[in-house]
């Protein structure tokens, strides 16, 4: 799955400016998460047209990166998230950050994992019998 990250200043309206820009260009956001510090925020989004979103943001002067991240469908039962984390840590895969989002289908949830090695993470998940969404 392709994730787009955007550098935003910690100023009122900077988040709205990004989402408005994307909406005006007909891009739908499926997930959004922010890591923020006292100085700045890093906005991470999953969009329906990631390449187009990346292009528009870059053209508008934003610091933007497009990354491959690992998505995993979360089963609605106890311990399923722990199972994923354990599968990754058993293979020595470091998770930089993770966040959840729901799909358009009711009752379906996903987790996004930003790891140091996507290939290894996918293999580790498969080994543990967990299917990754690529």
């Amino acid at each position: 799955m392709k994730q787009i990250s955007i550098f935003i200043e910690n100023e009122k309206g900077s988040l709205a400016a990004v989402t408005t820009l994307l909406a005006e260009n007909g891009i739908d956001l499926r997930a959004l998460s922010i890591a923020d510090t006292t100085d700045y925020g890093i906005l991470r989004i999953m969009a329906d047209k990631p390449e187009k979103a990346h292009k528009i943001l870059t053209e508008n002067g934003y610091l933007t990166k497009i990354n491959e991240v690992v998505g995993v469908k979360i089963a609605d039962k106890a311990g399923s998230l722990a199972k994923i984390i354990n599968a990754l840590s058993d293979e020595g895969i470091g998770v930089e950050y993770t966040y959840a989002f729901t799909s358009a289908k009711p009752g379906e949830a996903f987790m996004v994992f930003r790891v140091n090695d996507n290939e290894k993470a996918i293999a580790a998940l498969e080994k543990a019998g967990i299917g990754a969404v690529i």
């Binding site: 994730q3 990250s5 550098f7 890591a35 510090t37 700045y40 890093i42 991470r44 870059t58 610091l63 933007t64 990166k65 990354n67 930089e96 950050y97 930003r114």
Partner: peptide
Amino acid sequence: EMSQEQFSDTVKDIT
């Protein structure tokens, strides 16, 4: 000011 190449999606890298 950072350039596109210097920007990273993790706070850790920027720090």
